[in-house]
Computed example of a mutant assay.
Amino acid sequence: MHTKLLIALVLAATSGAALAALPPPTPAQVEQQKAKKAIADAQAEKDKLALLAKMDQLTANWRGRAGAKGWTVNPPTPLPAPVQAITAPALQSAPSGQPSGQLTVTGAQAPITSEKAGTAAPSADTKTAPSPPASTVKTK
């Protein structure tokens, strides 16, 4: 029992060192990270193209053998080009609904209300506390 407590105390004492902030990366490290990312992105694109080519090759091979074996081969389903919103990277210059990421004058002057904090009326769908039993009902 005491060893578990001692281990817990040692872990708690040493966890502060793990939370220490790391120094910001140097410009050379930032450039090195960018270069690694560019290499990884290029390799990922190359791998993706190789996978697509292999899938096309396997499909053509299967379709060629399926006809010879008497299997029913349906024509491939044509796929529309992907929508730009799906293929484009998600770039957003500011939070939605706030120009330049700044709170508008109206938003800044609005009172902060919260049901949890008690500064707003409860919602209509909030459950009410149950009422006490009637005096004619016998309870234990």
Rank of each mutant, 00 (worst) to 15 (best):
S131I: 10
G118V: 04
V73E: 03
G16F: 06
S96E: 13
A94R: 04
K138N: 12
L9Q: 15
H2M: 08
V105M: 13
K116G: 07
V73F: 01
A40I: 06
K127G: 13
L52P: 00
S135I: 12
A94M: 04
Q98H: 06
M55H: 07
T119R: 01
T136R: 12
I112T: 11
R63M: 02
L91C: 08
L22M: 14
T14K: 10
A40L: 05
T72A: 03
G107E: 15
A42V: 04
A35F: 15
A17L: 14
A42F: 01
V73C: 02
S135N: 10
A88V: 03
G64F: 06
T14N: 08
G70S: 01
M55Y: 05
W71G: 00
K34D: 09
D125Q: 12
Q33W: 09
P132I: 01
K46P: 05
K116V: 14
S100N: 15
V30S: 04
K138Q: 05
Q102S: 09
T106I: 11
Q43K: 15
A28H: 08
K116F: 07
S15E: 14
G101M: 03
T77Y: 03
L6R: 14
S123Q: 14
A81M: 00
A40R: 05
A90Y: 00
G101H: 01
S96Q: 14
V10Y: 12
L79K: 10
G16N: 06
M1H: 11
T3I: 09
A110S: 10
I112F: 12
V30A: 12
T87L: 06
T128Q: 13
T26C: 06
L5A: 15
A13D: 09
V30W: 05
A28W: 07
A108Y: 05
P111S: 11
T87E: 06
A81E: 00
Q84N: 12
S114F: 00
D125K: 11
